[in-house]
Design a protein around this nucleic acid. Structure first.
Length: 425
RNA sequence: GGAGGGGUGGCAGAGUGGUUGAAUGCGGCGGUCUUGAAAACCGUUGAGUCUUCGCGGGCUCCGGGGGUUCGAAUCCCUCCCCCUCCGCCA
């Protein structure tokens, strides 16, 4: 959520930001409602001041044993008038708030202006020392490997749940579990995070707090009867842990890392892009969440990306970092880096992580504040999160990059103590 | 699922219709004392919003929403959450 005061004072900046993000500009409508709201507010508050004054007077008169009947008739009228204005005010507030929840966060100044993913800017690329690309065309893709080695079963997943719900079998399941444990341990031991294992179903307030609702309503699953939503990412429960809380500056930065299954409807995506692991409805992810002092948030973003990179370096998976352009930024993000891992069989880069700074956009929605140590007014914290990382796309890269000419998989050395085996055949 | 109890400021906890935005304690901040710290003592300390260049002033907020009343933390309705006991159960 943007600060209404900021919108009021910088309408052109907000409009430009919305435009750069390919979102709908409702600024003029918002400003008109805001103006109306303030005028009604002044109106009703004046009447309320009068009411309060008279009511206090009644108290005094009663104590003195004097008659108060003559006052009541008049005050009843004032009370009615207040009610009328407040009703109108309520309608306007609801409309205004609903419009505000649809206004995206504005891109940070350092973000390149662009329309789509084509305009994203590569920041750097990392390849393992012994990385070779010659034999790529001979390599099996992850679906072929999964079938051949009997470690992934997409067909049975489709039977028991539907397409996009993969089943991990045997060593495939163990490898997945090893990967999750490795990533969690790595962040805990080397990057100073605190582990969280969050609920996988959250309420509407949480979904709104991090910005998934209302815009992404069609992309999430719902449990209507209980008004709960299966989480699309652990970002939601973890960030919302501190919803409606007043933190102390000395608590910051808060750094959490947590595993969760992630559930996404992926409404409207079909075809080649969606085969195998490339697009699934349920996947596993280790997520990092930071709640930080505003001034430090861009440094913390760089740190977040580097924390995710460390995992790929340890696994020796080729990757590149992209800075998303304004048009490709998600609704709540001010700046975002995507990390893409190399898939030799697909012959392309696959998004395995997204690291974003939301500045105070989520904090304002979720009401996450802190008291500055130096005193003064409470401030909204800045929130960030990044995948560290999502296993499905990463698994594609691991399987494909670690396959032998015979179509077996060598378990990446750092995972071997977690799997208990070093070859899948 | 049944019965009962409870949700008040950063935290703990008083307060049951009229200067109560809220006693008190803790915590925070400032100070005295001290070589320094602790302790002790003194002072100070809720949030949001509107208005004003500023000083200031107004309004709202005691789980959420609605109602009664001239006036509600306090009474009524409703929803949510937490705790205790019983039942059921992975």
């Amino acid at each position: 959520m943007l600060d209404i005061k900021f919108i009021r004072e910088n309408p052109e900046v907000v409009k430009q930001g919305i435009l750069n993000k390919n979102e709908k500009d409702t600024v003029d409508e918002i400003l008109a409602l805001d103006k109306k709201r303030r005028s009604l507010l002044q109106n009703t508050e004046e009447l309320k001041a009068q009411k309060n004054k008279v009511s206090a007077e009644v108290g005094r008169l009663k104590k003195a044993g004097e008659s108060t009947d003559h006052i009541f008739e008049e005050m009843r009228k004032v009370a009615d008038e207040i009610k009328e204005i407040d009703d109108e005010l309520r309608t306007i507030n609801e409309k205004l708030n609903s419009l505000l929840t649809w206004v995206p966060n504005l891109p940070h100044n350092s973000v390149p202006i662009g329309k789509s993913a084509e305009d994203n800017v590569q920041v750097r690329e990392w390849l393992p020392e012994d990385f070779k690309q010659e034999d790529d065309e001979k390599k099996l893709d992850h679906i072929q490997l999964g079938k051949k080695l009997n470690i992934l079963d997409f067909e049975r997943g489709a039977k028991i749940s539907g397409s996009g719900f993969p089943v991990y079998v045997g060593k495939g399941a163990t490898l997945e579990r090893a990967l999750i444990n490795f990533m969690l341990d790595y962040h805990l031991q080397n990057h100073g995070y605190t582990e969280i294992l969050p609920p996988f179903l959250v309420n509407k307030e949480s979904m709104t707090g991090t910005g998934q609702l209302p815009k992404m309503a069609d992309d999430m699953y719902t449990c209507e009867k209980d008004e709960l939503y299966p989480i699309p990412t652990a970002e939601v429960p973890i960030t919302n842990m501190h919803r409606d809380e007043m933190l102390a500056e000395k608590d910051l930065p808060i750094k959490y890392v947590g595993y969760s299954a992630c559930f996404r409807r992926e409404a409207g995506s079909y075809g080649k892009e969606s085969k195998g692991f490339l697009r699934v409805h349920q996947f596993n992810k280790v997520e990092m969440v930071k709640i930080v002092y505003p001034e430090n948030s861009y440094d913390e973003l760089e740190g977040l990306v580097s924390d995710a990179e460390d995992i790929l370096k340890a696994l020796k998976i080729p990757y590149r970092i992209l800075m998303l352009c304004s048009g490709d930024l998600s609704f709540a993000a001010a700046k975002c880096y995507d990390i893409e891992t190399w898939s030799p069989a697909e012959n392309k880069w696959l998004e395995a992580s997204s690291c974003s700074n939301f500045e105070d956009f989520q904090a304002r929605r979720a009401n996450i504040k802190f008291k500055p140590s130096e005193g003064g007014k409470p401030m909204f914290a800045h929130t960030l999160n990044g995948s560290g990382l999502a296993t499905s796309r990463l698994m594609v890269s691991i399987l494909e990059n670690y396959q032998t000419p015979e179509g077996k998989i060598i378990v990446p050395p750092v995972l071997q103590k977690y799997t208990g085996f070093n070859l899948i055949d």
